[in-house]
Structures are given as C-alpha cells and as structure tokens.
C-alpha cells in the first residue's frame, strides 16, 4: 500500500516522544490516511473507522515512549490500528448480526449474475472474513499474526480466508464451470 509522507515520519519521533503538539500533528497527518483506510476496510461504518482512527492515535501518543525503533514506525502504528479495529469489530458483533450477514441471506443463483464490483463484494462479507482478507491479502500479515491479533487459531484464520475468497469468487462472477 502506498503510504503518504511516511518517509519523514521518523524525523518527528523525538518531538512526539516529548509531547510536542506540532510533532504529534505531523505524525497524525503522515499516518492519518493509511490508518483510516485500514480501519474503514475492516469496520462497517465510517463512524466506527473515525473512532478507530482517534483511538489509534491516542494510544500512539500514550505509548510512543515504548517504541524502541526495532521495526518500522508505520509497522508499529499499523499493529495498533489493526488491534483497535478488531476490538471495535468484536464489540459491534454483540450488537449486530454480523456473522449472519452472508450466511442467512446468501445470494440466490440469479443474483450471482449481477456481477457485483469488488468494493461491494468486500462490504458484503462478514466482519471477521473481511478483516482476515484485508489483513492477510492487503496488509500482508501472516495467518499466525492474524490469529494472535484475533485471539483465534491459525486454522480459524485460514478457513476465514478460504471462505471469504470462495464468496468473493461467486459474487464477482468468477466461477469457472468444471
């Protein structure tokens, strides 16, 4: 993924560690778009994604002292953002019929011909499946890392990915007759 202005983000790190508001804003502006994008791809609504953006940076400013520079700053921020987005997903699961989204109302055979676009198909996936697809295929996390973040097993992550791809393939009209 193209990350805007991140090349210079490390330069403001000492200022952020010292609690300098201008440095905090520079860091926020550098990471705002990629963090929001990740959150929005995982969460169902823009409001949830905006909240995840806030919670991520609040945590970043609080914990920046513990960042030792062993990995990339973006990698560290991204892990916090993923964790916050997954927490939001879990919280909302109790309020919504998230997991039922693509199970109870499967597309009828004739609906498959609608050839949904990829954005719409991604939105239609259950929250968990969508999160696994995004974290694995786009953000590049391994199944082991996803399992740890979701507090699930590696098999769970793999099966969610397979299930998601199977559904995307059908909804996008990519199935090939055997």
């Amino acid at each position: 993924m193209d990350v805007f202005g991140l090349a210079n983000a490390d330069a403001v790190l000492p200022g952020v560690k010292a609690g300098d508001p201008a440095a905090q804003e520079a860091l926020y502006r550098a990471f705002e778009a990629p963090v929001y994008n990740l959150a929005r791809r995982i969460c169902r609504t823009t409001e949830d994604a905006e909240d995840v953006l806030q919670e991520t940076f609040l945590e970043v400013f609080r914990s920046i002292g513990s960042f030792r520079g062993e990995g990339s700053l973006w990698g560290w921020v991204r892990t916090i953002a993923s964790s916050k987005a997954l927490m939001r997903l879990r919280r909302n699961k109790y309020r919504e019929t998230d997991e039922l989204q693509d199970d109870v109302t499967p597309l009828r055979r004739e609906d498959a011909a609608l050839r949904m676009d990829l954005e719409a198909a991604l939105e239609r996936l259950s929250g968990t499946s969508r999160a696994v697809v995004w974290l694995h295929d786009v953000e590049g996390y391994t199944h082991e890392e996803i399992a740890t973040m979701m507090n699930k097993t590696v098999s769970f992550s793999k099966s969610q990915l397979a299930r998601a791809h199977s559904r995307l393939r059908g909804w996008l009209g990519e199935e090939v007759p055997a």
Binding site: E25, A33, E50, V133, H165, E174
Partner: peptide
C-alpha cells in the same frame, strides 16, 4: 483478485478530528 484488492483506492476520512484528538490527549 488479490491484486485488485491491493489496488482499491485509499479511503480518506471526511472530517478533520485532530483538534478533538489533541483535546482528549
């Protein structure tokens, strides 16, 4: 399909909530 997922546009927040974030912090 994976390549198309990676090529999806980067979504941008529609509101600037940095002042609110700084206030909370």
């Amino acid at each position: 399909r994976v390549a198309r997922l990676r090529a999806l546009p980067t979504l941008q927040p529609t509101r600037n909530r940095f002042a609110e974030l700084q206030g909370r912090y």
